[in-house]
Design a protein around this nucleic acid. Structure first.
Lengths: 186, 186
DNA sequence: GACTTTATTTACCGATCGGTACATTTACGA
DNA sequence: TCGTAAATGTACCGATCGGTAAATAAAGTC
């Protein structure tokens, strides 16, 4: 089953939106860079907003799949939680790294009631659910609270890697995470 | 010395850009909402980009002044560092809260070489310098590393307050910060 | 081979984008 | 009161915005 034209479009739109921003990348640019005519694009998606929602859905799947497969390489729950920050470090080192697609989406669509903002928030919720499972396995007294704290470090590291002058925010985040996890076995 | 028309423009533009986003808020909208004609705006600023840079400069001053005056209400350095997160909590509770202006700027101008992106990064650098002074006063073994970790929590809390489902990210960040500060006196 | 779906090109729509020309009005200092 | 600078409204510029019409060209299904 070859990737359909629609799937190609969503994947390429993801790359372009991530690099340029949602408002800055117009439908004409997408058409020019993907080689897919505007007419075809608007046959698959009623509006630019619909295309963005499809892009965010794809990114959500890709990112969570990638992150948790990297984490599962560690053997203990505690090791998996620390491995999260190693994975971040590799991501930050990519030359194409431009922060988190969902933070960018929320920045460009600041109203929480906007569908794009809401879908970005949903990604963060799904992520939290998966991390909370692991903090529970790790034997935390309050797995939800620990997961929230670890994810604060994760979001902070992403923002700082994009915006900051720091050398290695993932390393700092891992060190802080290790301190938060110090009471746990494994 | 009354606020000049120019200062009024920058302050009002700040509010509108913060609420709508940089790309989404056009010069016509700014003119309509501020009551200042486009002609006058372009007499003060050669381009929209110049106006945005002035807005970021104003926001940098206002935000750092506000934050550190709130922190200085605490008496010990350690107390000041924890007070940072109390101040964040009050900020997040404001109905107009829409994340951090500089994170938004970096999101909309993802290229680190872009002047707007660079100026946003400068804000984070200035903030780090001030926090590092306090972590040094607090007697940290590695004041720079501690400051970096605390600021990771700060950035994470801001993003999560805007995007997340969490009730009180400032409280979580403060709890995590307290754990990182637990070895310090005060 | 006929038929339907999918993708294509080209040209276009009204609205808005950032930015400007120009003539007029307001306001203040000397 | 005069002169000058600041601010104004109106009207406009070419380019781009998101989105569409219509006619054609492939491509796969029966």
């Amino acid at each position: 089953m070859r990737p359909s034209k629609r799937d190609e479009l969503v994947q390429n739109a993801l790359t372009i939106f991530y690099r340029e921003g949602f408002h800055a990348a117009g439908m004409d640019l997408l058409s020019a860079e993907t080689g897919i005519s505007k007419t075809t694009m608007f046959k698959h998606f009623r509006s630019k907003e619909d295309l963005i929602l499809a892009v965010l859905k794809l990114r959500d799947e890709q990112f969570r799949t990638w992150l948790f497969s990297r984490m599962e390489e560690a053997e203990t729950p505690k090791g998996q939680l620390l491995a999260l920050f190693d994975a971040l470090g590799e991501w930050f080192a990519e030359p194409e790294f431009r922060s988190c697609m969902f933070i960018k989406a929320a920045s460009e669509y600041p109203d929480p009631a906007h569908p794009i903002h809401a879908q970005a928030a949903e990604h963060k919720r799904l992520l939290f659910g998966q991390v909370e499972k692991i903090t529970a396995q790790a034997g935390a007294d309050d797995p939800a609270a620990l997961a929230r704290m670890l994810l604060l470090l994760k979001e902070g590291a992403i923002v700082t890697a994009h915006l900051g002058h720091e050398k290695d925010p993932a390393k700092d985040a891992k060190a802080a995470a290790a301190a938060l996890l110090s009471g746990l076995p494994g």
